[in-house]
């Protein structure tokens, strides 16, 4: 029983490592703030969630696992709020999104700023 739990936790931690590495790579590969935030959400949501699942599998008592569940719930509320605030600010000041069809991305979405 302990063995199965440890193997499942190992799988969850490996998934966290893979997703975290991919998110970090995407952070440097992509070009504009929105797309980078998308890659960051891979790092900040899925990797952390996998670590929480692994910790839940390894938790010794019910009290510890209940606390992990509460931490996961608060994380699920707070993490997207943070990335939403950054994306909303970028959208409000007029950062254009990356378009693969255009050769050169303009500096601003708004008309009055020089491009």
């Amino acid at each position: 029983m302990i063995m199965i739990r440890e193997i499942l936790a190992l799988i969850a931690f490996s998934a966290a490592v893979i997703f975290g590495t991919a998110g970090l790579a995407g952070l440097f590969r992509f070009s504009d703030p929105y797309t980078r935030l998308q890659a960051g959400s891979l790092c900040g949501t899925t990797a952390v969630l996998s670590i929480f699942i692994g910790a839940l599998l390894l938790s010794p008592t019910a009290a510890v696992s209940a606390r992990i569940v509460i931490i996961t719930l608060f994380f699920l509320i707070s993490s997207p709020t943070g990335s939403h605030i950054v994306a909303r600010f970028a959208w409000n000041i007029g950062v254009p999104h990356h378009d693969p069809k255009q050769k050169r991305t303009p500096v601003s979405r708004k008309k009055d700023t020089p491009s």
């Binding site: 998308q38 699920l76 994306a87």
Partner: peptide, 23 residues
């Protein structure tokens, strides 16, 4: 809106009443 942001691949930029702006 939070679930859309939580799913990798979509980010909610704005939410006005029932109107969502999503990247």
């Amino acid at each position: 809106a939070n679930s859309i942001t939580l799913t990798p691949g979509t980010i909610t930029l704005d939410l006005n009443d029932d109107h969502l702006t999503v990247h």
